[in-house]
């Protein structure tokens, strides 16, 4: 019975009764001006038509603006317990239409949570379990990646390409390599006038060479500092924990020469026993 997954997402189809529509409409437009009421009514009719066209829907039986808010019994609660996010392997067994519905359930949940968070901030109140936002976001990320997986599989099978935006290694203006996503389809470099222009004019000259030299120096400095920092850390560990397992250190810090570090002044410390 271990199921923590968020959100019950399959709901039975509901017939839209006129009475329920008028009821919810009146609640949603309480206290509006006349013009606002008319536009609201127009929007509302449109929305109803749109939903009715889809026939099967997944939301609860409320259709008003209060859907942006949490259940009334959760108002002012100090803790609202929910399960974990959807995992990829759970989403992979769901059909495309199920994923489509789930996406909108998650989207609505996110809207609701953001509204509640905003409201809590306004009222200087506690927003219970803010990790719910992250759980929804994680689920949405996973869902999107599963959809991408499926589309990629289709395109690879049909066209031999991924069907996604292409990205190629290219030099940017200062001669650094970049991996930008291309907006459109790549054309061959030899017939690409833009590329030819770039080749003739950009990433050339002494200024670019100087920049590249300094840039390489900067990266080398960072690497050197990181190396020293690691070695220093290892020496301090050896100093504080003299009986430490060197195999562990070698595994965690493969680039540090442990034997050499063990004999260093910093490792030995200032005790006369070690100095001798």
């Amino acid at each position: 019975m271990f199921v923590l997954t968020k959100l019950k997402y399959l709901a039975t189809p509901i017939n839209y009764l006129n009475s329920s529509i008028t009821l919810t409409f009146s609640t949603c437009c309480n206290g509006c001006s006349r013009e606002k009421l008319i536009t609201c009514a127009r929007d509302f009719q449109g929305a109803v038509r749109c939903v009715a066209a889809s026939f099967l829907h997944t939301s609860s039986s409320r259709y008003d603006l209060m859907e942006f808010f949490d259940d009334e019994k959760n108002w002012g609660a100090s803790e609202v317990k929910v399960g974990r996010a959807w995992k990829k392997e759970e989403l992979r067994i769901k059909s495309n239409s199920d994923l489509h519905k789930l996406w909108y359930v998650l989207l609505k949940e996110r809207n609701m949570l953001l509204t509640m968070e905003h409201e809590a901030k306004e009222k200087v109140a506690l927003f219970p379990n803010p990790e719910r936002l992250d759980k929804v976001a994680e689920s949405m990320e996973n869902l999107e990646s599963v959809v991408r997986e499926r589309n990629r599989a289709y395109f690879e099978l049909e066209t031999g390409e991924t069907g996604e935006k292409e990205a190629v290694f290219d030099h940017e203006e200062l001669g650094l390599k970049q991996f930008p996503e291309l907006a459109g389809k790549r054309i061959s470099k030899h017939i690409d006038e833009h590329w030819h222009y770039r080749l003739m004019t950009l990433f050339k000259g002494s200024a670019v060479a100087k920049f590249k030299k300094l840039y390489r120096e900067k990266i080398a400095n960072e690497e050197r500092k990181a190396r020293n920092r690691k070695r220093n850390h290892v020496m301090h560990l050896l100093k504080r924990f003299p009986h430490i397992d060197t195999a562990t250190l070698e595994k965690l810090y493969p680039e540090v020469n442990i034997r050499k570090a063990m004999l260093h002044k910093k490792t030995l410390g200032n005790h006369p026993h070690n100095r001798a």
Partner: peptide, 17 residues
């Protein structure tokens, strides 16, 4: 389970073909 959790029977149902 909290009211917003998906029940296990729904979760493990394979609907993808």
């Amino acid at each position: 389970e909290s009211p917003k959790d998906t029940v296990e029977s729904e979760l493990t149902k394979i609907t993808f073909s």
